[in-house]
């Protein structure tokens, strides 16, 4: 059973290469900006990490859209879960080993596992999707950027271990995000944000800009939740993250709704359900 997908390449107004650049460069720049500006300007700059995650989410949603259009046979959610599953493994490894180059290492190792899984999918599992290798690589890397970005926004740093700066102990990602279990929130938020846009919009009338508007909107929701968690961590400020998240969500949702109205054949108000008296 192929759940959705026309069995061919997806039509796209924005070329995928631009979105790859948007995801990788935008994601990493925002994550590093969050890290350095939190130290220079103060905890309220931690919202930049979530903006990096939104870049990753939009890129991932676009890659899901391309590969799922071939018909995976298992429904769209499977590939989103795969992305975040690989992303979490690579993120834990990258941040633990990498130190200051942690986010870059996480993206590289996520791409590596994604590449291997995509290759196995085509060669061993005989899936026969031409862009499978490229897409799993992209989706896994996007998953890693999403997780690193949201973690940075929650913790105010992407350093894995606690550090001592000017005599003060600065808790790392391991202490603030992984240990209390907020990583599970990031896990499911990131997976849904990456898989949901195409899953919700698929069909013969699916349009790239509508799907991506939905991805931005999901990113906004993820950012709001990240902000709520950030209110309890010392090095990150939640208020700015929540406010920026709400603004992004509102703008993206308006844009998404505009496109839904544009693509719909007809919109008619059905009114309220008839009351008992009216039915008799």
């Amino acid at each position: 059973m192929s759940a959705g997908g026309g069995g061919g390449g997806a039509h796209a107004a924005i070329p995928q290469n631009n979105l790859i650049a948007f995801g990788v460069v935008g994601g990493l720049v925002f994550i590093y900006a969050a890290y350095f500006l939190v130290q220079i300007a103060g905890p309220y700059m931690s919202f930049l990490g979530a903006l990096g995650a939104i870049c990753g989410i939009v890129w991932g949603a676009s890659a899901v859209r391309r590969v799922a259009n071939y018909g995976l046979g298992t429904g769209v959610p499977s590939i989103g879960m795969l992305a975040i599953g690989i992303g979490i493994i690579a993120t834990i490894f990258g941040l633990a080993v990498g130190g200051i180059i942690g986010p870059i290492l996480a993206v590289i190792f996520a791409s590596l596992i994604g590449l291997v899984v995509g290759f196995l999918g085509n060669k061993v599992l005989n899936m026969g999707i031409p862009i499978m290798v490229q897409s799993t690589t992209e989706i896994a890397a996007a998953g890693a950027i999403t997780i690193v970005g949201l973690s940075t926004s929650m913790a105010g740093t992407f350093m894995f271990f606690d550090e001592v700066v000017n005599g003060l102990t600065v808790p790392g990602v391991a202490t603030t995000v992984m240990e209390p279990g907020y990583i599970a929130v990031i896990f499911i938020m990131g997976a849904l944000a990456i898989l949901h846009p195409y899953n919700a919009n698929l069909g013969p009338d699916e349009k790239q800009d509508r799907t991506l508007a939905c991805a931005f909107e999901k990113g906004g929701i993820a950012m709001i939740i990240t902000g709520i968690v950030a209110t309890v961590t010392p090095l990150a400020s939640g208020t700015v993250t929540i406010v920026v998240g709400v603004v992004i969500w509102y703008v993206a949702f308006s844009e998404y709704y505009k496109r839904v109205k544009r693509d719909a054949y007809m919109i008619s108000g059905a009114g309220l359900l008839p009351s008992k008296e009216e039915l008799e």
């Binding site: 975040i84 690989i86 899984v117």
Partner: peptide
């Protein structure tokens, strides 16, 4: 969370 991640990869 690492076990969960591996679980999803091996379920997909």
């Amino acid at each position: 969370i690492f076990a969960v991640g591996l679980f999803f990869v091996n379920a997909v």
